[in-house]
């Protein structure tokens, strides 16, 4: 199994597209940091116009912690795409190249193969989120410095003291890893049905975009189904920046994501075991 995992990781990390993902994360982060460096004050004064009517806030508001939060918000759509780019290719890519049938002639079970592909995609996802943490948090703190963090919700202004921020980011990035693992599982599931990787990648993105819109539409029609959609829970990392931290709600979100991940993985195994491999 260890050898199988090493082979799968080798396959992922020899492809240029894997490094393109890391490059895209870096580029997006740089662009946001540059934008905030040049126009951060206007952004902040717009966001805080309701608060500024009654209170004067002074100090380094546009600090590394605040910028990281902005980057994480904007990457909500981009990171799933980058995860799907690799995970969606795991099975469909083999089918396209015609290596899947050859691979299954080896003395390994189909379940072992799927498990190895899941684990390699998981490792890739974790590394991508760690890279995001390094460039978003590390670089932002270097450029903008540290300070108390301001979090703006639709009806609440939250101030988090700087010595209380880092554990929240550690927890938030761990949660982001879980959310992205769900996306990777979905992508692998879609990959099992396709013979080329474009289909699963586009399908994953399509599903994420549609469900994200649905999760954010404040319509009574959708309010009943929102708790059961995984995209509603993917923003659970934001809960760590609330006051008080909604531990129960975050726990529910984590459970929903785990259930989805296991269900996607289980379905993939079920379908792959029954599938007639023709290429």
């Amino acid at each position: 199994m260890k050898q199988l995992l090493q082979i799968e990781l080798f396959k992922i990390f020899r492809r240029p597209r894997t490094y393109i993902s890391f490059g895209i994360v870096t580029a997006i982060t740089f662009v946001i940091q540059l934008a905030m460096l040049t126009d951060g004050k206007s952004y902040m004064s717009f966001a805080l116009q309701g608060v500024n009517e009654q209170f004067d806030i002074h100090g380094n508001m546009i600090n590394g912690y605040f910028i990281t939060y902005i980057i994480l918000q904007t990457l909500l759509i981009q990171i799933p795409l980058l995860v799907a780019l690799v995970a969606g290719d795991t099975l469909a890519g083999e089918a396209t190249l015609g290596t899947l049938r050859l691979l299954l002639t080896k003395p390994i079970s189909r379940n072992q193969l799927i498990l190895a592909k899941f684990m390699s995609s998981f490792i890739y996802t974790v590394l991508l989120v760690i890279w995001l943490a390094v460039v978003a948090l590390g670089l932002s703190v270097l450029i903008f410095g540290r300070g108390d963090m301001v979090n703006i919700k639709s009806d609440t202004f939250i101030l988090i003291l700087q010595n209380d921020v880092l554990w929240r980011y550690a927890a938030a990035f761990c949660f982001a890893m879980l959310a992205m693992t769900t996306i990777a599982s979905l992508s692998i599931l879609l990959s099992v049905f396709a013979d080329n990787s474009i289909g699963p990648i586009i399908s994953t993105m399509g599903i994420v975009v549609v469900l994200t819109i649905l999760s954010n539409l404040d319509l009574p029609l959708f309010n009943h189904i929102k708790p059961y959609i995984f995209t509603t829970h993917m923003i659970g990392w934001k809960g760590f920046f609330d006051d008080p931290v909604p531990v129960r709600q975050i726990g529910i979100s984590a459970m929903v994501l785990i259930v989805y991940t296991v269900a996607f993985a289980g379905t993939t195994m079920l379908v792959f075991n029954k599938k007639d491999i023709k290429s």
Binding site: A47, G50, V51, K153, D155, T156, N216, K238, P246, Q249
Partner: peptide, 16 residues
């Protein structure tokens, strides 16, 4: 006074 931002901008996770 009250403080309000469009929910579409802030994408809140929980209600306050």
């Amino acid at each position: 006074k009250d403080f309000r931002m469009p929910k579409g901008m802030t994408m809140d996770y929980t209600e306050s």
